[in-house]
Measured scan of single mutants.
Amino acid sequence: TTVKLGDIKVTFDNPEKAKKYAQKLAKIYQLTVHVHGDTIHVK
Rank of each mutant, 00 (worst) to 15 (best):
V35I: 13
K17R: 11
P15Y: 14
F12P: 01
T2D: 04
G37S: 04
N14G: 04
Y21R: 01
T32F: 08
I8P: 01
L31V: 05
V10N: 02
K24V: 11
K9S: 14
Q30L: 07
K19Y: 15
Y29K: 03
L25V: 06
L5G: 02
V33H: 01
T39F: 08
K43E: 10
D7A: 14
V3S: 02
L5N: 03
I8V: 10
H36Y: 12
K9N: 09
G6S: 04
K20H: 08
N14C: 08
D7P: 13
K9W: 13
H34N: 05
E16K: 10
I40A: 01
K9G: 06
V3D: 03
V33W: 09
H36T: 10
T39D: 04
Y29P: 04
H34Q: 11
I8K: 10
H34Y: 13
K24T: 10
V33L: 12
A22G: 02
Y21L: 06
Y21T: 02
L25K: 01
P15G: 06
T32P: 02
A18K: 00
G37K: 05
K24E: 11
K17G: 06
I28W: 11
I8G: 03
K4D: 04
H34G: 03
K20T: 07
L25D: 00
V42I: 10
D38H: 10
D38F: 07
H36V: 15
T39S: 06
D13H: 10
H41K: 04
K20W: 10
T11S: 09
L25P: 00
Y21C: 09
L5Q: 03
F12N: 00
L31S: 05
I8N: 06
A26D: 03
A26R: 05
T2W: 07
E16N: 09
T2V: 12
A18L: 03
K20F: 08
K27L: 13
H36P: 00
I28L: 13
Y29T: 04
H34S: 10
L5I: 15
I40V: 06
T1S: 05
F12I: 03
K19V: 11
T39A: 05
Q23N: 11
G37E: 06
G6C: 13
I40R: 00
D7T: 14
E16I: 10
K19R: 12
T1V: 12
T39I: 13
V35L: 08
V42H: 01
I40T: 02
I28F: 11
F12G: 00
D13K: 12
G37N: 06
A22W: 04
K20S: 08
D13E: 10
A26L: 04
Q23W: 10
K17L: 12
D7H: 15
Y29V: 03
V33Y: 07
K24M: 14
T39N: 04
F12Y: 02
V33I: 13
V3I: 06
E16A: 10
D13T: 12
K4T: 10
H41T: 13
K4L: 14
I28N: 05
K4C: 15
K19L: 15
E16Y: 09
I8D: 02
H34E: 13
I40Y: 07
K27P: 01
E16W: 09
K27Y: 13
K43T: 14
V33A: 04
D7Q: 14
K9Q: 12
T2K: 05
V3P: 03
K9M: 13
L25F: 03
D38W: 07
T11G: 04
H36D: 14
G37V: 04
G37Q: 05
A26Y: 03
K24W: 15
H34W: 10
I28K: 15
L25M: 07
L31M: 13
E16G: 07
P15W: 14
T32G: 06
T1W: 14
F12K: 01
V35W: 10
I40M: 05
T39R: 03
D7C: 15
T32E: 09
Y21E: 02
Q30W: 07
T39Y: 07
V10T: 05
G6P: 03
G6Q: 05
P15Q: 08
I8C: 14
H36K: 09
F12T: 00
Q23V: 08
V33R: 00
K4A: 09
H34I: 13
D13G: 08
H36E: 15
D13S: 13
L5C: 15
Q30Y: 08
K19A: 11
V33K: 00
T2N: 05
I40N: 01
K9T: 14
L25Q: 02
L31F: 07
V42K: 01
D38L: 08
K27N: 10
V42L: 15
K24H: 14
Y29Q: 02
